[in-house]
Amino acid sequence: MYASHDYQRVYVWQQPVRWFHWINALCITVLGVTGYLIAHPPALLSGAEASAGYWFGTVRFAHFLAGYVFVANFLFRIYWAFAGNKYANWRNFLPLTRAQFRQVWDVLRVDILQLSNQPVPALGHNAVAYFTYAGTGLLTLFQIGSGFALYAPMSEAWLPQLFVWVTPLFGSEQNLRLFHYAVMWAFAVFTVIHVYLVVYHDYVEGHGVLSSIIGGWKFMEKRHAQADPATGISGFRGRAAPAPAPGAKTPATPAR
């Protein structure tokens, strides 16, 4: 009667998504740390001569380098939102169905207000998570736009020059800096909550969320794994797939 053996391994996060995630996390960390240092360089009351050091220049270089990687990685993820499996699909990130909204409410009830102990079944993320990631996606876009606009005067390269129009929108470079800086804090807040919630879900639900972003697999009750009742969004390359027949195999598990 206990259903522990009724578990199924589901391949949720394809390799490209996993690479994307960790490169993204690394970029955010590097950009955040170097950005913070650019904003608040530590006091070095040494007798050093300027000719003997370049650490601040190096910090900035790291920031700009990470900035380029960050953009490339993000562009790739956008591509993968169309090319990847249904959990990576772009539709998840947009509020398209009633079911998504219902799930938002469920998540609030179960995870935040803790009115119920019944986990919200979701193979990919739940709707709240997807929407949050859409939000971080916007923040990412903003940091890219503002960052490259700030970078444009220091660079002859074409990419930064694409963003010169951003600065006037903010009245002055100084104001743009302020917003670019403030969004760093937004990323910091996200990271704290995000990592906490990942651990929380793993700890409470035991679906293997933590390891899924490394190995790609989640562990789901068979019922949920096969029906994916969550949000009504499914399918491959943006097309809605017919609901799997009961007892059918789990969604595609391509070679890893």
């Binding site: 206990y2 259903a3 102990n117 019944q118 909550i193 906490y196 409470v204 639900e205």
Partner: peptide
């Protein structure tokens, strides 16, 4: 997050540490 963690350990005590999902299924 800290407060939530504490709350979780209280409110979901039953679920945590049991076979994953069993509690839910019972519910």
């Amino acid at each position: 997050a800290a407060a939530h963690a504490v709350l979780t350990n209280i409110r979901k005590r039953a679920e945590i540490g049991e076979q994953p999902g069993e509690n839910a299924e019972r519910a």
